[in-house]
């Protein structure tokens, strides 16, 4: 579980996350919001890539306020950026094995974790295949394996369904659902479909602030009144954004 307290993040003087206080998890949490809402910056901050400008956050109750706490947190976090780098010459197995080492998975357990996670993402039979020979969907699954290997307590996925075809998205949701039973999975998306299918909690973000935090049913309930959108969830999402705009005016 992750708890953020008055978290602020800025880039070159521009405020990206504006005093966010939120508790994420356990289970699946979807960050929903328009482009530029601050979802990626929040995930990068929680992944300990970029320290917050101010405020604190904790992972499983441990506040990151010392180098030791930072190391502890990194053992527990699996993170996959939207556009992740890979070396085309590496095999899938090498790629994920390396991730296990990066995450500090004990040496004797690494191989079994790698095999298990490759099985989970249905890449076991491509373990010895070079990354350059994988399709776009398979590369994305290898990336998910990177984030999941070692059974981290917190998994952060930035727009993980971008570029996946419908069949791959269904498969991906299965993986995430399974993972969500043991870990806190925070994923960012701007696709309401994903939220609907994955269930769990939803945080609607805009301009660096959390406008809504609740279950998907609570969000859908906001969309009962006539509004733009094809589904109750979409209408609820639009309503939250419209309310925020009206308040701002």
């Amino acid at each position: 579980m992750i708890e953020a307290c008055d978290l602020r993040q800025s880039y070159r003087g521009r405020v990206i996350i504006d005093g966010l206080s939120v508790r994420l998890g356990p289970g699946i949490v979807s960050l929903l919001g328009p482009n530029g809402a601050g979802k990626t910056t929040l995930l990068r901050t929680l992944a300990t890539i970029k320290p917050p400008t101010s405020g604190t956050f904790s992972v499983d109750g441990h506040v990151i306020d010392s180098p030791a706490a930072l190391q502890q947190a990194r053992h527990r976090i699996g993170y996959l950026p939207q556009a992740f780098g890979y070396d085309p010459s590496l095999t899938v197995q090498d790629f994920v094995h390396y991730a296990a080492w990066i995450r500090g998975v004990p040496r004797q357990q690494r191989s079994s974790h790698v095999a298990s996670v490759l099985d989970d993402v249905r890449l076991a039979e491509h373990a010895k295949t070079k990354m350059r020979k994988l399709s776009g969907g398979m590369i994305r699954r290898a990336g998910i394996a990177w984030a999941l290997v070692g059974e981290p307590a917190v998994v952060l996925l930035d727009e993980p369904t971008v570029g996946l075809d419908p069949q791959q998205r269904v498969a991906f949701r299965e993986i995430v659902s399974r993972c969500g039973q043991q870990a806190t999975v925070v994923l960012s998306t701007h696709l309401v479909d994903d939220v609907d299918a994955l269930g769990g909690d939803v945080v609607v973000m805009n301009e660096g602030r959390a406008l809504f935090h609740g279950t998907k049913d609570e969000l859908a309930a906001l969309g009962d009144a006539p509004s733009t959108g094809a589904t109750p969830l979409e209408r609820g999402y639009i309503r939250v954004l419209e309310n925020a705009e009206a308040t701002a005016i």
Partner: peptide, 15 residues
């Protein structure tokens, strides 16, 4: 320099 970039940024101490 490594092509993995951000993937390695959050690595643990051993790395």
């Amino acid at each position: 320099h490594s092509p993995l970039g951000e993937l390695e940024s959050a690595a643990v101490r051993e790395y």
